[in-house]
Design a protein around this nucleic acid. Structure first.
Lengths: 229, 229
DNA sequence: TTGTTTACAGAACAATCGTTCAGTAATAAT
DNA sequence: ATTATTACTGAACGATTGTTCTGTAAACAA
């Protein structure tokens, strides 16, 4: 596929980047991609092929542009990764802040953050997917991994607290339980796709039932899932 | 780090590749790495940095060799990936064959394959880790993804059968349940390390309790985990 | 000593990597 | 018509990519 063919293939760039865009109110200069659209498509491609396996030439071809045109919208390849990772991490951190602020008990906060994480993951799927694949190959990636570790530690503390309160069984290591629960949650990036047959709310219910169903001490004896939240 | 320094750092290659090697009985030619050792270290490095982010020069430096020396042991970079992926897939497929051959009911087979998958994952951690990160960027990767899909479908059929038999709750989609369960299992590659504090057997117990604990219909009413297996 | 076997180095290859720069093109506001 | 503003092209850059070729080095067997 030569440049002209690629151009034709991406003849309507806005539709790909902004599905059902709310009638953009006539921007100033020459029509074309803007920064946000380029970012969106870039992150999608990074997820399809992997960040390292995606060249700037690949991205330019996908957009129907030359490589140099890309650098009008974006400072570098890695800067695209940086903002996407920050987006994902900010979402997760806010959800955790919410969970501990709103709920009274550690178990309730835990249920809340599992729901919240599923919500962030489905809402910001491309960014979170990118985050979960980071290996620490650059300073930016290492910083993101550090924020992820801090998040995990806070959740682990919640699990431990719920165990101490007697709301969660105590014969499983809190760190192991946390990793298994979020392993299940994070695995959603591998197959969940928005607009598919699976509803995000229903999905959060299922995840909670599988991940916490075998750990709760159910003082009320009830096996119903949605009962307490 | 120049070539000489790298050489010194990897002065005892055999110890890194073959921990506690059973007194290799004096091979023929010039001493040095053999194919298996190179493969082992290569897969380790692929896991550390990601396959695409690891250059042949990186691997050569890690081994304390030149790039050209590498091609004496291995046909290509991708061939290393190919044998590792085949190794992981063969292990998983055998575990599944075992599970359906040995057990009588679908639920028992399901428990068996979850245990088996944890076993293969911990025993062949580097190869399975590599498998789970494949994105389908080449013919070899796409073939591996195809074998993985076939594996998933067979397990999903087990879940559906256990639901039909009344051993598993029916109000959750079999495909979703399978993906969540194996999402939890596969997430072990992110943190489990052999020789660490966590025992593989205990780990399999924990995974089974979390992943299936909330789904079983427990006809005997018992909540004990290791009871039936 | 003469082969055989295994393991390595050095130099070079075309291709691709991410990035820069100087100029051009197309719109809206004035 | 002029000016801003925004979007893009084409050519080139040094560096790195995976791979090949030709020759050498070090062990064991005959």
């Amino acid at each position: 596929m030569d440049a002209a063919a690629a151009r034709t293939a991406a003849a309507t760039p806005a539709s790909a980047a902004l599905p059902a865009s709310p009638a953009s109110p006539a921007r100033r200069g020459r029509p074309g991609y803007d920064r946000a659209q380029v970012m969106t498509i870039a992150v999608q491609l990074f997820n399809d092929q992997g960040y390292d396996a995606t060249s700037v030439a690949d991205l330019a071809a996908k957009l129907g542009l030359t490589k140099s045109a890309l650098y009008h919208h974006v400072e570098s390849k890695e800067s695209i990764l940086a903002v996407a990772l920050d987006d994902a991490l900010t979402g997760l951190e806010r959800a955790l802040d919410d969970a501990v602020a709103v709920e009274a008990t550690a178990l309730a906060s835990l249920r809340h953050i599992v729901r919240g994480a599923v919500g962030v993951l489905t809402a910001k799927l491309p960014q979170v997917t990118l985050l979960l694949r980071v290996r620490g190959n650059s300073e930016i990636e290492r910083a993101a991994l550090e924020r992820r570790r801090a998040f995990d530690h806070r959740v682990t503390a919640l699990v431990r607290e719920a165990q101490s309160a007697g709301d969660l069984v105590g014969d499983i290591d809190a760190a192991v339980a946390t990793r298994l629960i979020f392993g299940m949650v994070n695995s959603l990036t591998e197959w969940y796709r928005p607009g598919g047959a699976v509803d995000p709310e229903q999905l959060a219910d299922d995840v909670l039932r599988l991940s916490l169903g075998g750990l709760e001490c159910d003082p009320d004896g009830g096996r119903a899932v949605g009962g307490s939240l």
